[in-house]
Nucleic acid binder design. Structure first.
Length: 424
RNA sequence: GGAGGGGUGGCCGAGCGGUUGAUGGCAGUUGUCUUGAAAACAACCAGGUGGUGAGCCUCGGGGGUUCGAAUCCCUCCCCCUCCGCCA
């Protein structure tokens, strides 16, 4: 959520941001409601001041002039009427404000869509193959470690079942990532609910605009999380963090649930775009002055997983047209998937500045006795586990259909070096 | 699911219709004293809006009664205890 004061005083900045994002919002209507609200507010406040003063006076003295009480009754009725109008305006302003996207940072490249994202670096050179590399869905099914037909049978399209070494590899990846981030990068591990209240989704920016992309449990008015970013960031909602507790770094493994509405026809096969997947998420709450640096280190922490797995990858800086609603700056690490012949997004690391903190009301006290200020929040996948599993299968495949286990994962698989097809 | 108890400032805990946004204690900040620390003493010490002003709002949320509500009424939410069920 943007600071209403900024919107009021610099509407041209907000308008420019909307244009750079190739989107629109009823900014004029918002400003009009705000002006009206401020006008009524000053009127109702002076009436209230008058009533408070008279009531206090009546409490102090013995005689209660009936005409004064009658006059105050009328003032009270007028206050009630104005209060109603202010409340209606409040609701309207709040709603419009919740639909305004974040303002991209100055250094974010301006562009219309994903084709104008900028590759900022590449790591590693994809190895050559003496044979035609297979897609992970073919490999996985041939190895007997992934079962898409049965996934579809029990949960519909875009579902999967991992079996045997596939399930073990998934588990190994999760454990490896959690260990790396807790031991090497200083993140504190948390495990949080997968079902959250809708206000958490508002807090991180998914709601109200993107309700169609989430699964909601209507009977209990809860929402299945699309990412652990939601519960982990909201851990601190409505709090004022004491001096010295920032920065907070959390890592959290969770299942993630996405309806993928509007993605019909895209990545229909395999593990790339599914309704449920595991993800290890990195979340940071920091002081505003450090959030730029913190984002760079966050991306590096995510990339470290790919470097450790020796998977070639590149990092893209998203342009304004492809930037997420709540983000001011986003880097997308993309892994090379030889079976696809392309780089595939495997993480997304964003700095939200105080956008989420305002929505979720997460503040900190810079020093004892100082006024509370909004924190800056950041998060990024470190990494999406299903896609990482797919990338490992495709990149480490051998001509006979077996898959070499990346050395760094072997301790998590009882030393196993190769995943082989079932003996036939 | 059934029965009972309870939600007040960072924490504990008063208030139960009238200068109470809120007594007191603890914690915290600053100052005096001290070589330093402790102790003692003094001041400050909830959030929002506003200009670190006045004013206004907030005692779990919402609504009502009243000139006036933390205090009375209605309603919803949450927490705790016991019973039932359950991994």
């Amino acid at each position: 959520m943007l600071n209403l004061k900024v919107v009021r005083e610099h509407p041209e900045v907000v308008q420019a941001a909307l244009e750079k994002r190739h989107t629109s919002a009823p900014l004029g209507e918002l400003l009009q409601l705000d002006e009206e609200r401020r006008r009524l507010l000053s009127e109702v406040e002076s009436l209230r001041a008058q009533r408070n003063q008279v009531s206090q006076q009546l409490g102090r003295q013995k005689e209660r002039p009936p005409e004064l009480i009658a006059a105050m009754r009328e003032v009270g009725e007028r206050i009630k009427e104005l209060d109603g109008r202010v409340a209606a305006l409040d609701a309207g302003i709040e709603r419009l404000l919740l639909y305004l996207p974040n303002i991209p940072e100055e250094s974010v490249p301006v562009g219309a869509d994903e084709s104008e994202n900028v590759v900022v670096r590449r790591w590693g050179t994809p190895r050559g193959f003496h044979f035609e590399p297979r897609a992970h869905w073919d490999l996985g099914e041939a190895l007997g470690i992934v079962d898409f037909p049965r996934g579809a049978k029990i949960a519909g399209a875009r579902s999967w079942v991992l079996k045997g070494d596939g399930a073990r590899l998934n588990r190994a990846l999760i454990a490896f990532m959690l260990d790396l981030h807790t031991r090497q990068h200083g993140y504190a591990e948390v495990a949080t609910p997968y079902l959250v209240k809708p206000e958490c989704m508002v807090g991180t920016g998914q709601f109200p605009k993107f309700v169609d992309e989430a699964y909601t449990v209507c009977s209990d008015e809860l929402v299945l999380i699309p990412t652990a970013e939601v519960p982990v960031t909201n851990l601190y909602r409505d709090e004022i963090l004491a001096p010295g507790v920032l920065p907070i770094y959390h890592v959290c493994h969770s299942a993630c649930f996405r309806r993928e509405a509007g993605a019909a026809g895209r990545d229909t096969r395999g593990l790339i775009r599914v309704h449920q997947f595991d993800k290890v998420e990195l979340v940071k709450l920091v002081e505003p002055a450090s959030s730029d640096d913190e984002l760079e280190r966050l991306v590096d922490d995510a990339e470290e997983v790919l470097r450790a797995l020796e998977l070639p990858h590149q990092v893209k800086l998203l342009c304004t047209g492809d930037l997420g609603f709540a983000s001011a700056r986003t880097y997308d690490p993309e892994v090379w998937m030889p079976g696809q012949g392309r780089y595939v997004e495997i993480s997304s690391c964003s700095n939200f500045l105080d956008f989420q903190a305002r929505r979720a009301s997460i503040r900190y006290r810079p020093a004892a006795g100082a006024r509370p200020e909004f924190v800056h929040t950041l998060n990024g996948s470190g990494l999406a586990v299903g896609r990482t599993l797919a990338a490992v299968l495709e990149y480490y495949q051998q001509p006979d259909g077996s898959v070499v286990v990346p050395p760094v994962l072997r301790p998590y698989l009882s030393g196993q070096e190769v995943i082989r097809p079932p003996a036939s």
